[in-house]
Design a protein around this nucleic acid. Structure first.
Lengths: 201, 201
DNA sequence: CCGGCCCAGTGACACATGTCACCCGTCCGG
DNA sequence: CCGGACGGGTGACATGTGTCACTGGGCCGG
């Protein structure tokens, strides 16, 4: 019997996936969480075989959870199920010792097969995702560049960003210019878009 | 027996919701579509009681489908299930005669209850969403302003936007300035964000 | 202990953007 | 038939951004 905890913030999707997996005779849904904190608590309490989790959730992302569980040397294998094929996400997942990374548009049968494979000790990372992550390389941004870019994305001016970060406007300008250069972008907007598309924000 | 066609582009979510609804004895999933065109074809072919559809899908959005079916005076009641509570989406749904609008974070039981209510001739629009749509008012942008804003969002310069739209750069500047003014935004980035948040793009 | 990276800043310059006033033509409804 | 909205445009001006060069301090690893 494979014991599973599910984490997903959209109640409907959570319920639906639970219903789906409950159809498999060798699966048992032992817990459901609507956010990262709940997921961690359930995993610690129940030590399931599998934690099947979304990435973008309130309070803690699925990647945060994976990282924390890895640090605790938990027995539970973490499987990420997400909408986004962002290289940065996949990279962080790898670093956190995640055992599976699936997209929400994979067929149902593949998910079930992946869970069985992972429960048996395997690893499931689709080849095309891994290749894309390889191509994209790794995050070239420094922490401060990321900070500035996040605020720039929201439409703040250099002056406002500077105020929020406690910097001089000139420095902010330099950071954003640097970031755009590294990302091959012509301006802050494009820079923000590529950084986000790659999961670097 | 309530006959349902499901439309949702994420295969996993599609399969999961199908599994969930199949548990109800009086529901029957008669068709599944992964995009708007498939959904339309299935509805025309099968004339189900309910089309349960996502909004953001390839080829045609769920709102497009609803509009087309309304124009054809189809018997099928359209129910939107989406992640986004954007006022503009809700407004367009209302205009297309949609019979239900639910968020993906509503509990499973609510979805089931809503489907039964709608099959019985009712309408289901959560009061809080309706209120938010009321507050937001209606789309103040003209078509050309929307076009310009969409391209500005992607980081194109006035010159590039002008080239793409076959306009002069000055005109583009004016459109974006107008749009920002109407939306109470300080610049094109903020304008793009608010427009998108409201479902006006 | 030195090179290299990150953080933080300044000054100058070119160019992009935001704002405003004012222009024309078209089309539509009162 | 006239006003008003929309599409499209120009010119001028103030600000905001993007780019570059150059300065310094702190910290880490070879």
């Amino acid at each position: 019997m494979i014991r599973i905890v599910l984490a997903e913030d959209q109640a409907l999707v959570l319920g639906a996936i639970a219903a789906l997996l409950a159809l498999e005779p060798d699966f048992r849904i032992v817990g459901r969480a609507a956010n990262g904190d709940e997921a961690l608590a359930l995993v610690r309490d129940l030590t399931p075989d599998i934690l099947l989790t979304d990435i973008e959730m309130p309070s803690r992302t699925g990647l945060d959870c994976a990282q924390i569980l890895a640090a605790e040397k938990a027995r539970t294998a973490v499987v990420i199920v997400t909408t986004f094929a962002r290289p940065g996400y996949l990279e962080r997942a790898r670093a956190a010792g995640v055992r599976g990374y699936l997209l929400k548009d994979t067929p149902v049968d593949d998910l079930v097969a992946a869970i069985r494979a992972i429960a048996a000790g395997g690893r499931v990372i689709p080849a095309d995702l891994a290749a894309a992550a390889w191509e994209a390389g790794s995050d070239p941004l420094t922490d401060r560049e990321r900070d500035a870019l996040r605020l720039a994305e929201e439409g703040l001016s250099n002056k406002d960003i500077a105020r929020r970060l406690g910097l001089s406007p000139g420095t902010v300008r330099n950071y954003l210019s640097e970031a755009a250069g590294k990302l091959g972008a012509a301006n802050r907007i494009e820079a923000g878009r590529t950084a986000r598309a790659n999961g670097w924000l």
